[in-house]
Design a protein around this nucleic acid. Structure first.
Lengths: 341, 341
DNA sequence: TTGTAGGCGTTATCAA
DNA sequence: TTGATAACGCCTACAA
């Protein structure tokens, strides 16, 4: 039904070869012909059939992102920014972005990766929410399929990644709290198999150690990167006989729940209790009080990942394989004394 | 390089025809053969090449969503939930989801739609953020290309849509404010060409009219669906000689900015000023104070849209073309008197 | 500068 | 129950 290259060729009494080459802007086609072909194609609404082109060229000009969605419909709060970054950068390079959702570690996830890689539905993949041992990394490495990760798993192998140094920056976040005089600082983390949990909790411990502060087990709680879990962990912390004076959270969603719990306890965040998050999600500046956090430039990170991936797809020399992006420590009222105007 | 149907056939001394049919679970193939083929395919890691399949079948088993992203990297805060819903429902039906970003009304947007439709990259489209006059609707209708919208444009034509009745529910939101005794209620809207602005502002006016309240022009402000613009509009409203006692916002992001502005003015939201939003984005329950809003079940809406779209793609009888989803009026402290525990 | 022809990997038609 | 064969629409040696 749709118009094919044949139709355009027939209309102009040209061969499909010429039409094809004219449209690809080859140099060996008469200028006049070029003009005519393009104009006619435009008029007839001809756009090359993507499937045919892919089959012939053996590439899809598409990159894939399988977003890790736990439970019914939880999803990262910065997924919007990430997808925007991936999409923008991809389209600037003539690539499309294929997205699917799957529970981390599910068979659905595995099948999706199989279909996309073996079926050549995508030319490369973007991987986030890395696990310490991550079958995706192992699988793709072994297949020799192009991919880029956000952070790295502990699996050995060469592959490009874009990273924010969680250890270092969580430690800096801690130093900020310690500099404010806090000595009993709690940590609310996430599942131990996640790379970010590993890094950030290490930063937490390193900071305590460096300052000669004791590691108090009861001040370490585990959540699941949701506000709800942050709320509950905070409940446990705030009802302790000797509660913490500061709570550092593995991410902003968790911190949001902590703010809520503190409010329900009639605790003034900022003066009575310091709360800090990590990520810099949209909305962290609009919490009450505004949240101190480490701001990751997610949009830029996404663009960078796509850039690396496309290089990899084109088989270009890897250059810098491991890119570190500097986030920003944003100090807001949640860790400041009362600020009343 | 990857294994093809040929390789599988060769290994089993069968024809590719038989392999193909065995894998599609046709009935006219020996059970034993069936088993053997599937097992071997599995072992060899064979997955049909998607491009070849698409070319032959003349469909892509893919649906497209071009997400409207204004300026550098603004994007809807509920895009995560939407994409999760689209992705989940699509994959349950064996479809993939293709996503791209483009500025509404840009030529990039138009070219993306052309490539996807004419190039048969997708079998159908999901359209959001409808404009009153929307070229996308006109274009797709004219092409006879399957699509489903969230809300409808004013363009005539038959197509399926999933809707939340913005007029009615904004009016209900207003009635809540009026019932609380508010008489000077401001409205912060968005660009006039957006369908949601048209609907919600109409709801605002209808409510005033129904209650015999005057429409006060200076209480009507325009933003752009961002917290920043809500903040600025609130600044204007709160410095008025005779400021409003309540502010109803076209969406939650705008309302978030209003909360922030009120706080900066030392105004107690809830007792001194009522603020309400619309959408029910993740985070609205964690603002301070928690925000009164109309909660749209975005995830469910997304699933429903995909469902309708797939019916449409399969050419099934349209059935219900226009689906209304009931949101929920969630009353929180931003419109309640002081609630101190 | 243009045209001919072969094949990318599948699925579907038809015959065996 | 299985196999040979012809497309699907495009790109690209190679020939003219």
């Amino acid at each position: 039904m749709p118009v094919t290259i044949r139709d355009v060729a027939k209309r102009l009494n040209l061969s499909i070869t010429t039409v094809s080459r004219a449209m690809d802007g080859y140099y060996d086609v008469a200028e006049e012909t070029q003009r005519l072909v393009n104009q006619t194609a435009q008029e007839m609404g001809y756009v090359p059939n993507q499937a045919a082109r892919q089959l012939r060229r053996q590439r899809s000009d598409t990159i894939g992102y399988l977003l890790p969605s736990d439970t019914p419909h939880f999803s990262d709060p910065y997924v919007a920014e990430l997808v925007a970054g991936l999409g923008d950068q991809a389209s600037e390079h003539g690539y499309d972005l294929l997205v699917a959702t799957a529970q981390p570690g599910s068979t659905a996830e595995q099948r999706a990766y199989e279909r996309w890689t073996h079926g050549r539905k995508v030319d490369g993949l973007i991987i986030t929410r890395l696990r310490l041992q991550d079958w995706r990394v192992q699988y793709l490495l072994q297949m020799g399929f192009p991919f880029v990760t956000k952070e790295r798993s502990d699996d050995p192998g060469d592959y490009p990644s874009v990273e924010v140094d969680g250890k270092r920056w969580f430690r800096l976040l801690m130093e900020h709290l310690i500099a404010l005089g806090h000595r009993r600082i709690a940590y609310i983390g996430a599942s131990a198999e996640l790379k970010i949990q590993s890094d950030r909790s290490t930063g937490y411990r390193q900071a305590l150690e460096a300052e000669g502060l004791p590691l108090i087990p009861e001040l370490i709680q585990t959540g699941n990167l949701s506000a709800e879990s942050g709320y509950q962990a905070a409940q446990r912390l705030l009802t302790l006989p000797n509660p913490p004076t500061a709570i550092a959270c593995v991410d902003d969603m968790t911190a949001t729940g902590v703010l809520h719990a503190a409010h329900d306890h009639g605790i003034e965040v900022g003066s009575d209790l310091a709360v800090a998050g990590f990520d810099g999600i949209l909305g962290s500046e609009y919490t009450q009080p505004p949240l101190t956090t480490v701001n990751q430039p997610v949009y830029q990170i996404a663009r960078r990942m796509v850039e690396l991936l496309i290089h990899r797809i084109h088989g270009e020399s890897p250059g810098q394989q491991q890119i570190f992006i500097e986030p920003e420590l944003v100090i807001r009222q949640s860790t400041q004394g009362r600020n009343k105007n």
